[in-house]
Design a protein around this nucleic acid. Sequence first.
DNA 1: CAAAAACGTGGTCATTTGACCAATGTTTAC
DNA 2: GTAAACATTGGTCAAATGACCACGTTTTTG
Lengths: 192, 192
Amino acid sequence: MRDKFEEYIISQTGMPAASVEHISSLACAKTLKRNELLVRAGEVCRNKIFVVSGLLRNYGVAANGSEHVLQFAPELSWTLDVESYDNGTPAISNIGAVEPSEVLLWAKADFDSMLQEYPLLKHFSQQVISRNIYYNRRRVMTALSASPEEKYEEFVRSFPKLLGRLPLHMIASYLGISLKTLTRLRHAQLLR
Amino acid sequence: MRDKFEEYIISQTGMPAASVEHISSLACAKTLKRNELLVRAGEVCRNKIFVVSGLLRNYGVAANGSEHVLQFAPELSWTLDVESYDNGTPAISNIGAVEPSEVLLWAKADFDSMLQEYPLLKHFSQQVISRNIYYNRRRVMTALSASPEEKYEEFVRSFPKLLGRLPLHMIASYLGISLKTLTRLRHAQLLR
DNA sequence: CAAAAACGTGGTCATTTGACCAATGTTTAC
DNA sequence: GTAAACATTGGTCAAATGACCACGTTTTTG
């Protein structure tokens, strides 16, 4: 499990194996069952989360109980509730497993000191953060301007590998449309 | 004009006046007429933009010509097209003046070297970036989960001072609803 | 392997929303 | 100061959407 992470970091940063093993050694490994929660909204998100295998979702629950997905995090990706992690405030999102998953967790203090120690890691980390900023910006644009069909097509284009792994109601709640609308437009596309 | 910026930076960072004057001296000042464009989608956004007075909007134009506002930037705030600024790629948004405005512009190279030179500026800059990340995250949540009325109420709560300064169609295009829906719900609220 | 839960699809219906058009009042620009 | 452009509100209508319900199938789970 840790070796997959180490391989990933080496390929992404070119860091020496010894440093990567050090980073890896500070992580806490955890196995999640399907639907198990890792972070609960309202609590503080105290860890950086790296998904080694499986699939997590980062989602908020509205007052009326409806769920809204902020992010899907498949294997070899990162997730957390940034605002909570940075400031120790209550998280606005839940983070849970869609599939049985393996994750690595770092406490903020540990991760911060690693960022100090390894400039290559810091550089990479900032890349990840930047990508996330761009992604959210584009997502706001899409949410504002696209029709349900365009949103779905963009999702398929962006995450083709996730299509078969997610129940449709989660895709709908990621796109901000109802399940009904989603099945309708899928049906319409079949007829073309 | 520059003094307003210097005052702002000193109050936000506690930097010494001499450093702030240096920063200020590297900026290019510009006056914008109402509706004048500062950054055009498709071109590269080459500057950090600080709004000294007036009001800018950062917005995308969809294929069908409809406009969608990503951000309003009133006096004493920052704006740019991040992805374009960072990577030199074409901007996805236009940035233009809603009111006659005064802005300060820094070239990326200059701003980067200032970040190196002044740790307090770097720290503050990262705060601004963080706030922006949190803001976009919340915005995605709202866009996904809130009703038009809730979106409007959240806007009023978040930016009470902007209400009277913006035409309603811009607020609608910020909220991702039609002008018609916006006037409808405002009318409904009047009756309560 | 069997029972239970979750999933995808479909139907109906009421409601919301947007597109289009018009009228009036206000602001801008020359 | 005046003409032109813009803003706000309103009406009507068609279309899109979501809520609710049901059914058959697949997937989990014990």
